[in-house]
């Protein structure tokens, strides 16, 4: 297994290549341009297609077309561009087409700013598009996870015939770290019998999201929901760090969790019993796992780089009896480990 020293964005793009991505369409936006730059160079070498689209609206719809032909497809963008893709994500869900969407978050609302942000948690996890659907969302916290999770995102997308999303912090994307290339010799993706092949095979294939007859739409929506229930059983991933004896557990995703881990180490050095819980799959959310921790630990500190979004999910899961405090940083300045350590200390 090759050991590499890569930026998070490169690790992600390399992971996509190792996952046999064969189609990318996207539109330039800071801070994710290194992903399309990498793929425009590397995709043609492995027989893949790269298209610079005229907009994010076009990009996501190009994915819809290529995905219907059975290719592994992806796009990447940053917050404003992801807003433009929401209609397409809804159509991908409705049409049951796999696709991977990467959001390297920046500030909103509006043009906002290009600094580090976690302002898109709600948009990503609650479905920014119209209709009744769920998009699995993963939040990497290292270059290695950029590599691992994009591959998982492709696998989950194919398994459930759904779009999936990587919700990425810009710092994770820019940081250079060791990456083990675990899946270099990955076998080819399975043939998708529902997709358009090289010619029409037998019955006509129709890929659509319009259901007008009788109860068809109701059945279709329940079917999408059933897939989500299975994901809740099978696709939850999380990390729990020193939570067993913890008196307080810090909860954060992505970059915040990475910084949080250092804060926990500081705390432990000073005999403060603190732990870290980090959801890696934001959809499906690790509800049971978090609940299990709350059987022993009664204090939680949720940290996010926004004014409080994931904290609502934590409150929903843990209920009113648990002491949940929130520390938000809706600015480009990430909290330092020391800062989080002091926040932990304040709570106990």
């Amino acid at each position: 297994m090759e050991k590499l020293f890569l930026r998070g964005s490169e690790a992600l793009a390399l992971g996509a290549i190792d996952a046999s991505v064969k189609f990318y369409a996207g539109y330039p936006i800071t801070p994710q341009n290194d992903i399309p730059e990498f793929l425009s160079r590397e995709l043609p070498k492995v027989g893949g297609k790269f298209v610079q689209a005229e907009s994010e609206v076009a990009a996501i719809n190009m994915l819809l077309g290529a995905s219907a032909c059975g290719l592994r497809v992806m796009t990447s963008s940053s917050s404003p561009g992801i807003s433009l893709m929401q209609e397409g994500i809804s159509y991908l869900s409705g049409s049951e087409l796999p696709a991977v969407i990467v959001n390297v978050m920046r500030w909103g609302p509006g043009l906002g700013g290009i600094g580090a942000s976690q302002g898109d948690y709600h948009q990503a996890t609650k479905g920014g598009g119209h209709g009744d659907y769920f998009v699995p969302v993963f939040a990497p916290y290292s270059a290695q996870e950029m590599y691992d999770l994009i591959i998982r995102a492709f696998d989950v997308a194919d398994k459930y015939r759904t779009p999936t999303m990587l919700l990425v912090d810009v710092m994770i994307s820019l940081m250079k770290e060791k990456v083990i290339r675990r899946f270099e010799k990955r076998s080819e993706v399975k043939i998708k019998s529902w997709a358009f092949g090289k010619v029409k095979e037998g019955e006509q294939k129709i890929i659509k999201s319009l259901y007008l007859k009788g109860n068809d739409l109701e059945r279709h929506n329940w079917k999408l929901y059933e897939k989500y229930k299975v994901m809740c059983e099978k696709e939850v991933i999380y990390e729990s760090y020193l939570c067993d004896d913890a008196e307080i557990v810090l909860i954060g995703f992505g970059m915040v969790a990475r910084i949080g881990k250092s804060a926990i180490d500081i705390a432990r050095e000073r005999n403060v019993k603190a732990g870290l819980f980090r959801p890696i799959s934001l959809v499906p959310f690790p509800e049971k796992e978090l609940e299990a921790i709350s059987k022993k630990c009664k204090k939680f500190l949720v940290v996010e780089m926004n004014t409080g979004q994931m904290v609502h999910d934590i409150q929903r899961v843990l209920g009113k009896d648990i002491d949940i405090s929130f520390y938000g940083k809706p600015s480009s300045y990430a909290p330092t480990p020391e800062e989080l350590f002091y926040k932990i200390k304040e709570q106990i």
Binding site: F23, V57, A58, N61, M62, A68, C69, F196, K208
Partner: peptide, 22 residues
């Protein structure tokens, strides 16, 4: 024939994806 429904207005982006893929 094999058929794909595009969102309103997005036919030619969808067709681009299809033709590039196949």
């Amino acid at each position: 024939v094999d058929s794909l429904e595009a969102p309103h207005g997005r036919g030619l982006a969808v067709a681009t994806g299809v033709k590039r893929a196949r």
